[in-house]
Each structure stands twice: as structure tokens, then as C-alpha cells.
Amino acid sequence: CHSECLGNCSQPDDPTKCVACRNFYLDGRCVETCPPPYYHFQDWRCVNFSFCQDLHHKCKNSRRQGCHQYVIHNNKCIPECPSGYTMNSSNLLCTPCLGPCPKVCHLLEGEKTIDSVTSAQELRGCTVINGSLIINIRGGNNLAAELEANLGLIEEISGYLKIRRSYALVSLSFFRKLRLIRGETLEIGNYSFYALDNQNLRQLWDWSKHNLTITQGKLFFHYNPKLCLSEIHKMEEVSGTKGRQERNDIALKTNGDQASCENELLKFSYIRTSFDKILLRWEPYWPPDFRDLLGFMLFYKEAPYQNVTEFDGQDACGSNSWTVVDIDPPLRSNDPKSQNHPGWLMRGLKPWTQYAIFVKTLVTFSDERRTYGAKSDIIYVQTDATNPSVPLDPISVSNSSSQIILKWKPPSDPNGNITHYLVFWERQAEDSELFELDYCLKGLKLPSRTWSPPFESEDSQKHNQSEYEDSAGECCSCPKTDSQILKELEESSFRKTFEDYLHNVVFVPRKT
């Protein structure tokens, strides 16, 4: 048989008469490798580009789960590009990614509803959504962080984005990388972005840091009482949809009607710091009717980097990364020049730590249904340095008659930039024990000054392991946590139920 035959053949030295091919099969003959313009397919066939392209389009058009959109890589027609490569849609070739590779997620039936953290986790790592997304989240724990972890990498949506009755959302900033909504599939009414009845939605994105392009379709905003109209108009300008909307697409009466839409800028007039305090004062603000001013709200939190936005980490279910302080308005003076500047002394802060701070007014709604208010920009203030805590785990070892090696770990709280350490030492008198000992005694162990690591005695271990207080009263049991108490109650309830079950099964009433 021919060298490319495997198993047997019907005619000697003829690659077209093989029972099976050793390498690849091409047009009725066995070959060692697939010549151009053919590609290896499933490690035994040679196919042309049209064959591989037909497989790709067949799966793409069917949208069946589990099928493969075949691509070409290293002269092979394979189910998908290997790690580190992405497909070129024009020629199906796998090309190296520039940075992290995109991950295209194809949605069944063309859309997916995100109504819980669990459903959001199914899209973790996706960068391109081939379909439409509907966000409908009523509640949950730590929602802002969970949504950002699972949806934060999405850069492109081919269909539309719909935010509907998501009472738990305060902001859409968890879509931190969303840059493009194509609108290839539109919501009824030709809408590519749809926001309806979101009672706590206050911000779409921080438009000073976020760009969003909507290729096709219109915007729809109705019944978002805490979303200011200025935020919607800003989205029109940034996304390129200005002029597409009709009169009733953006409701003037049901958007922002319960919001404090600040239209003035508060400026800080005085800032002073110490290692654990920050004193702030800002310019006074009074609405047209000074009785509408209820006070100020001061927001602050630790910020290692200057990239904080107002609604980071917030949701309507209680999660809030900001510390909020309510401040009463100052006494009002008739003389504008003698107006008191409101302020606040922030206490209990960490030394040498940068804080993000902003302040906003708290006002009631005027009778004319106009909203007044003022808010400052987010500023960054760093507390002063102070003395560091003591170095940890000092170790001293003498390696000769004239040297001592000293080692330690950095302090747990540096409280500033540590530039150097101060080492103090003092000579001590020799131990009298060394002169009084009889060095001729056998088995004498000389006193040693070398360091030995501390260890816990058996008594201390027994005390720590004991669940009861000892007789001397030195140790006591740790208080039980809520989960331990709940577990004990469940076990007790189970024992009672099981005992009742045994009584009912074992003891049967005697027939009379």
C-alpha cells in the first residue's frame, strides 16, 4: 500500500485506493498535508475557505447554543480562536489581540433580562453583547459592586439597553466600559436606550469621564423622579442622539420631579488639616426662599486615587461607600458681607490618608415646582503625618564578641513616609551569675543571650482551647457569634421535631 494509506488498500502504491488515510483526505486521495488554498479540518480532512465560511455563517444565523462559528488559524479551520487571539470578521482569520481579548457573548432569543446578581454573573467577562440587555433589578445585597464585577467589562451592545423598574439602582456607572450601543435591534418605538419607572436612579454616568455613542435609535425617559433633566440632556449631547427624540420621548413632568437638581456650584473657602482632623468651610448658599434650606450634607471617604465619582458603590438597598454628615444651616444675616460661612470639623480620621470630599445642599421643593440647590466639586484632601507606631517583631542576635545583629519589621501604621529608623542602645553591667558559677561542674549549661522565638506554653494553649472559665478566673470563653447562636437554635429545633416524629412513629394507638 501507499505510504499515506492506513489499515489496508485495494490497489498497491495508489493513494486513492486506501481504506483510511494516515494524515489527511483531499478529493478522494490521501495526502501528507493540505496544500494551499485548503485548510486542515478536524485533523483528517482538507477543506477550502468557502466550506469553513459556510459553517461560520450557519452557526451565526441559527443562534443555536453550542454550535461553533468556525475560524481560520495556522492553516486550520477550527471552532474558535485560541487564547490571546480574536477573529477578523472580513476573512475569519485569528489575529493577536492588542491588550485583553474581546469576548463576544451571543444571547438566546436576542435579549437577556438581568433581574438578579445570579443572572448578571452569566455575563461575567463579556466585552461584546450580541443582542439586547434588559435591566430589571428590584433589590439585593452589595448590588453596585456585584454588577460592576460582572457587567463592568461590557464595551458594546449590538441591540438596545433597557432599564425598567430597577428600584435598587442609583447610577449606571457599573457599566464602566460601555462605549457603544449599535441599535441594530430596537425596542418598540425605535428606541435604543429605554429608561422607565426607576424610582431611585439619580445618575446615568459621570459624563466628564465617560463617552457613549448610540449609532441608531432614540432615547426614552419616563417616570424617573430623581433623575434630573440636565442629566438626560447631557446624554443626548454626548451620545449623538440630540435631535432624534420626539416631543413625548422625554417626559418633562415625570423626570426629576422629586430630585434636588443642583444648578449652582458650592466653593470651599477654608481648608485646614491635622493628622486626624480636617476643618472645612464653604461659601454660604440661600435659595430664593431661605426657609427652603434644610441644611447641608457632607460626604467623605478614603480615596487612594483621584478618580472618585459621587455615586460609586451606591445602591438604593443601603450600600453606600460614603460617610454622610448632616449639618444645620448657619444663622442668616441681613448683611451679605457678614454672612457666616458654614463648615464642619471632621474628626477621627487616619493620618497621612487622602480623602475625597464634597458637600451639597438639602432643600425642600418650592411652590413653583422649581428645584434649587448647590453642590461642590469633589475635592481631595490629605491629612498630615504623625509619629508612626512601633516597629514590629524586633530580633537581636550576637554573632561574635563585638557585634549584635538587630532586625525588625516595619510598623503596622507608618502614618507617613518613613525615611529612617533611630536605634538606641545602652551598655549593661555583666551578670554576677557568670562569676559565681563553678565551671568545672559536669552538665553545666552556660547562660545564653542568643534570641529564641517566643512560644506559647501548654497552660496558655489549654486556656485558649477551654470553653469555660478556669477556677483562677484568668480566662473566659469568647462570646458566641450570631451565626453560632442561630445554628444552635436550628439544631435544637431539629432535635425537638425529630423526637416528636419518633414518638408518633414508635407509639401507635392500640386498636379498641
Score class of each variant (00 low, 15 high):
350 K>W: 15
181 I>F: 01
346 M>W: 02
202 R>V: 05
256 G>M: 13
331 L>P: 07
368 E>R: 14
298 L>K: 00
217 G>Q: 12
320 N>D: 02
173 S>A: 12
114 I>R: 00
104 V>A: 15
298 L>F: 15
187 E>K: 06
162 K>G: 12
290 F>D: 14
332 R>T: 10
177 K>D: 08
358 F>K: 15
187 E>H: 08
353 T>R: 05
175 F>Y: 03
394 P>M: 04
249 D>N: 07
288 P>W: 07
342 P>S: 10
349 L>Q: 03
226 K>T: 10
282 W>R: 00
293 L>H: 03
342 P>F: 10
307 N>L: 11
184 E>R: 10
244 R>N: 07
160 Y>G: 12
261 C>K: 02
261 C>D: 02
201 L>K: 00
331 L>M: 07
338 S>G: 09
255 N>K: 03
201 L>A: 07
191 Y>F: 04
252 L>D: 05
300 Y>T: 14
204 L>N: 07
134 I>E: 03
289 D>I: 01
312 D>S: 13
265 L>Y: 08
253 K>F: 13
334 N>I: 15
154 I>G: 01
103 K>V: 07
123 L>Y: 11
154 I>P: 00
257 D>F: 03
115 D>N: 04
378 I>S: 03
185 T>D: 05
297 M>V: 12
211 N>G: 14
295 G>P: 07
288 P>N: 07
155 E>G: 07
284 P>M: 15
302 E>S: 11
172 L>S: 04
260 S>L: 09
387 N>T: 13
171 S>L: 02
381 V>E: 08
229 L>S: 05
366 S>R: 06
125 G>F: 03
213 T>M: 08
228 C>V: 02
156 E>H: 15
170 V>Y: 03
358 F>R: 12
175 F>K: 00
252 L>E: 08
291 R>D: 01
291 R>Q: 01
397 V>M: 14
378 I>L: 13
256 G>V: 10
113 T>L: 10
322 W>R: 00
271 I>M: 05
120 A>Q: 08
395 I>P: 01
390 V>T: 12
116 S>F: 03
172 L>G: 03
260 S>M: 08
259 A>T: 13
122 E>V: 05
153 L>A: 14
349 L>T: 11
118 T>E: 13
339 Q>E: 15
107 L>F: 05
134 I>F: 07
166 S>A: 11
252 L>M: 11
291 R>C: 01
158 S>F: 12
384 D>R: 11
318 G>K: 07
149 A>E: 15
350 K>M: 10
304 P>A: 07
249 D>Q: 12
252 L>A: 11
360 K>M: 10
171 S>I: 02
247 R>N: 07
359 V>M: 05
170 V>T: 09
103 K>H: 08
374 A>E: 01
